[in-house]
Design a binder for these strands. Structure first.
Lengths: 142, 142
DNA sequence: CTACGGGTTCGAGCGCACTCTAAGTCAAGG
DNA sequence: CCTTGACTTAGAGTGCGCTCGAACCCGTAG
C-alpha cells in the first residue's frame, strides 16, 4: 500500500504520515526500488490506536515513549502497561471534569430557556416575538 | 482587587488576564488613578465560567462570540443559549468518544496485565521477577 | 531619598501539532 | 517521447493559546 492509499484508509494526510514517521511515531517504512513507502495493512491497527491516544489527549511526547517501548519489543510490557494505566487515570479524571462542566452548562442553558419562555409569555422586551399567550408555553421547545 | 490578587484567586496568571482583556474575553477593567486595573469580585464568576468553556474544549474564537453577546446585554439570550446548546452537543459527543476510547484502553491494559501474569508464572523472560508459583496468581493486582 | 514590589504597555517568543512549499524523481498511459 | 500525477526530501510556515521580556511608572516602608 502506497502512502496515498494509507492516507485515505487511515484518515491522516500523507503529510502527517511522513511527519509521524520522521518523529518516530510510525516505524520507518520499507521503500520500493524508487524509494517510495510501501505499507503493510497492519500499520492501520497501530495508526488507529495512536488515534485513540490522541483523541484522549495524550501528547505526542508520550506517544513517542510508548512507540519506543513497542519498537523495543518484549520486556517492555510492564512499562507500557504502566504508561497506559496512568493515561487512563488522567482520561477518567478528564471525563469526570467534562461531566461536571456539562451540569453547569445544563443549568446555564436552562436559565436561558426560562428567560426566553418568560419573554414570550409576558412580552417584556421583544414585541416582535409575541405569540398568543395560550400557546406560548410550548414555544421554542427543542 | 488588583490584578495580582485576581490572578491568585482565579488561577490565571496576570499575563493571561491582561491577554484575555486585550482580546475581549474579559471586559475592559476599570483603572485606579495610576491606571492600574481594579477588579470587582464578580469578575471571578465570569472567569470561572470561561474556565468551564475552556475545559470543555471551546476555542477562544467562540468564547469571544459568547462574550460579545453577553456584553451586548439583553436581547441576545436566544443566541447565547443556541451557542451553548451547540457546544453542549459537541461536548456530549466528545465524552462518548472518550468513553469508547477508555474501553479500548481497558482492553489493552488487561492484555498487558495478562502477559505480565503469565510471565511471572512461567518465568519466560524476566528471571529477577520470579515469585513462588503458588502466590504468583495474585501478584501485582492493583 | 531610595529601594522595592507591585503594576503598566507593546511586542516578541514559545510549544504543540501539524501543514504546506519547492524542487526534484519516477512509472505508466497516450 | 512526453505528459501526468503520485511520490520523494528538507525545511519553512501556520494557528492556537498563551508566556515572557523590556522599559517604564507608582506608592509605600525604611
Amino acid at each position: 500500500m502506497k502512502i496515498g492509499e494509507l492516507a485515505k484508509r487511515s484518515g491522516l494526510s500523507a503529510h502527517t504520515i511522513r511527519y509521524y514517521e520522521r518523529i518516530g511515531l510510525l516505524p520507518y517504512a520499507d521503500r520500493d526500488r524508487s524509494s517510495r513507502r510501501d505499507y503493510d495493512a497492519s500499520i492501520l491497527t497501530w495508526i488507529e490506536f495512536l488515534g485513540r491516544l490522541k483523541a484522549t489527549g495524550m501528547p505526542i511526547r508520550e506517544m513517542l515513549r510508548y512507540a519506543a517501548l513497542r519498537e523495543k519489543g518484549s520486556g517492555t510490557e510492564a512499562q507500557r502497561r504502566e504508561l497506559l494505566d496512568q493515561h487512563r487515570t488522567r482520561v477518567r479524571a478528564h471525563v469526570a471534569e467534562l461531566q461536571a462542566c456539562l451540569l453547569v452548562l445544563d443549568a446555564k442553558i436552562a436559565g436561558y430557556a426560562d428567560a426566553e419562555k418568560r419573554m414570550t409569555q409576558y412580552d417584556t422586551t421583544l414585541p416582535e416575538r409575541r405569540r398568543k399567550p395560550a400557546g406560548a408555553r410550548q414555544a421554542r421547545a427543542r
